[in-house]
Design a protein around this nucleic acid. Sequence first.
DNA 1: AATGAATGAGAGTTCATTCAT
DNA 2: AATGAATGAACTCTCATTCAT
Lengths: 245, 245, 245, 245
Amino acid sequence: MPAKAVSRTKLQTLDPGRVSSIPTTIKNPERVAHRRTELIDVATKMFLERGFHNTSIRDIVRACTFNVASLYMYVSSKEDILYLVAQDLMNNIAQKLSETVLDPESPERSLEIGFASYCQIVNRFRRPIRLLYREVGFLPPEPRSAVVATVSSVISYFETIIAGGIEAGVFRKVPARLAGLDVMFIAHMIALHTREVRAIGDLDAYINYQIGSIFAGLLVTPKKPGSAPVRQAKVFRSRKAKVVG
Amino acid sequence: MPAKAVSRTKLQTLDPGRVSSIPTTIKNPERVAHRRTELIDVATKMFLERGFHNTSIRDIVRACTFNVASLYMYVSSKEDILYLVAQDLMNNIAQKLSETVLDPESPERSLEIGFASYCQIVNRFRRPIRLLYREVGFLPPEPRSAVVATVSSVISYFETIIAGGIEAGVFRKVPARLAGLDVMFIAHMIALHTREVRAIGDLDAYINYQIGSIFAGLLVTPKKPGSAPVRQAKVFRSRKAKVVG
Amino acid sequence: MPAKAVSRTKLQTLDPGRVSSIPTTIKNPERVAHRRTELIDVATKMFLERGFHNTSIRDIVRACTFNVASLYMYVSSKEDILYLVAQDLMNNIAQKLSETVLDPESPERSLEIGFASYCQIVNRFRRPIRLLYREVGFLPPEPRSAVVATVSSVISYFETIIAGGIEAGVFRKVPARLAGLDVMFIAHMIALHTREVRAIGDLDAYINYQIGSIFAGLLVTPKKPGSAPVRQAKVFRSRKAKVVG
Amino acid sequence: MPAKAVSRTKLQTLDPGRVSSIPTTIKNPERVAHRRTELIDVATKMFLERGFHNTSIRDIVRACTFNVASLYMYVSSKEDILYLVAQDLMNNIAQKLSETVLDPESPERSLEIGFASYCQIVNRFRRPIRLLYREVGFLPPEPRSAVVATVSSVISYFETIIAGGIEAGVFRKVPARLAGLDVMFIAHMIALHTREVRAIGDLDAYINYQIGSIFAGLLVTPKKPGSAPVRQAKVFRSRKAKVVG
DNA sequence: AATGAATGAGAGTTCATTCAT
DNA sequence: AATGAATGAACTCTCATTCAT
């Protein structure tokens, strides 16, 4: 059953439990986790405010409870910090997305729920996502491809749903990966063009419009234009999320 | 007449001739233009290769015919150079886009031509566009909003076409600006996810698919899925442009 | 009897059993000795490879079975480690030299045997000897003079032999200490100018030439130049030792 | 005529005019020379006092009339400073040695004059020579071999004299290069064992003794032991140079 | 006796910018 | 208008050493 495949794939590809591969001289893993959490919090905030290159190690450490030398017991370079931040973000996104409950019976509803959920995730993490689009190029190759892999898994997430819909005969025979890429990327617009998106309306309106647009391109039997939006189920707290830069 | 509106809007908002507003102590404007041209060429290349923050003033000057102190007679900070580069790029893009010959008789064809043209532009400038997405946040507010304004004018470019189509009754009553934003952003995917896009197929296939998807959401009378692509007119040289990172 | 004087002096001044005077907080002397042995082995190797200043405490400890804090229970500073290494080396050299069996009947043969033996020792220890010449200046005064004292005892070793020869009437009335210094230093050339020495010939040839040269300056009755080398007795394994940097 | 060859070789191999190959961003060569002179003076003194590794760039600059950033316009690394110091010393030594007037008629007298002169040079530069023996291993390969080459040229200096003497029939058929190495190295003892040498007597006594010893090994017709020293001509100012550590 | 973790101080180097000519 | 030279400030990273347990 395709629907089941979807759900299974999702659980496989979006496993957020990947352990950091950054080496450390500290032996107690809990301590490492604790320190790195603090580090990630501080660094994320600063990288967001001033960018990776305009944030110095000393800036970061000044806001931490440990000093420069200690920092280097938990990471081995400044790039590692960027990697930690990126990894944390990717894990959070994958985690949130994997929590989304799809509808195994309906690729159509699954796509709708998944997209809406991802839009809300992107909205929530829009600033770190912007950060990542900016700074991913400055990651060393290995961490960089880890980030790229997570992005790819998000594409696969939507690709799988769409492929399921095609197989089930409800979606047209489009190239599923490209369609999945479109879906993910349209959600990313919330992060990359926040101001423009906000100028047009609130997040729910945005989601509704894009879902309509996406289904227009996908459905074998198009909905009557202007008909009531398919969407009803609210994923997460739908606090009329404001889209603010 | 909508067609005229399109053309007029295009000429207004995409005027590539804006003169730099960066101050200089030099009297002779030709000299300023000459020096800045060299500067932009060199800086663009270096920013592309190593990023803005990893390029030092000395790196730039080393590849120029003038020295550091002279540089500071034509710009007042490193950020100014970034602005010059960004501005130049935006002008180039606007220029290229404004050269595209639309079809005043048909919003449908105009959108198709415009989108295809813009995709090719984005493909050509994908690395500088990536650069801009990355570094625009590091521009000082005033230059930054100049860049944002040009982006907005590209959105308006498509918005106007779509609004024309709605007015002409061939497009559904969608929010024209949001639809325009979609169109632009889908083109930007070529720059921001080059690898994924390339993995899927060549540029023409990409354009065709996206045009189909866009029209599915816009047209009052949808095309039969799988029918021959609307698109025929090749803008620019359609040399089966490869999308290479 | 001069011969006896030689032997007695040797035993006095070359006693290799001096116990380290470096203080420690550890009560159990065996434990101290054990740890220090490991430390000396590791540190010697590292100092040889990268020099004292380019070897960090952490480098050393990483190769030991104990950690940084433990290290500081057995030494009180990085310089102490250098001292331990230096002392160990001096003891080894003194030990080896004291094992050399001289000829109580003949100062001439004793000098020959002693010099040949010392040359082989220097050849064997040429890298640590180079290390010592380099780093002895960085020892604190007290340990430093301990090293200097051992050097002095080597000079005395040869001085005593020569003085015996003068007394016995076979050597000319040269300043014995200066002559002894010459003898020792000529041997050190193997360590300090290894490349040049090696370029000229093998170790045995070197020893033979220098013995000839030394005796030419010392003997009351000079040997006929070009005559067969005095030297016959091989001290240690005379495996045509190669002199390699 | 062999004597002439000696003098010619000397002029060739000891040319002190080699220009520094260390790159600089400064265009005015006089300024470079001026700054580097100051740098060499300061650095030499500090390297002597505390060693290369215990002298920080900031230590050096603090005693200079320019600051850290300026320093790096004249050298490109700390190692370069060591090279400058080494090169300066080698040049000085070569210069002084090349000023020594030998006796083209007599290899015997030439060797005597040359050795005495070199001893005085070594005595004058004994501390920087010690420095060099210590730190030459920390030079990068290229500069290092430049230093080695100069040392080699000093050996050649004596080798050539000795070879001339052998050819002229006044010296025995010894291996000339090894004999030259001995001569140079015996002079170096003044630098490497200053304390011991000083304890034995003054510089002139040292030189006289060593000359006697050298000639004993070299001369076909040995002098009568204890006879008046060959040496009379004082090279340089013979201010009864004290040998002080 | 032993160790994991921490740290102040400082290392070498480079930066964007400006002066003096 | 142009440039060679200079500079204060800051950078990332490592060190020898010492707590707290």
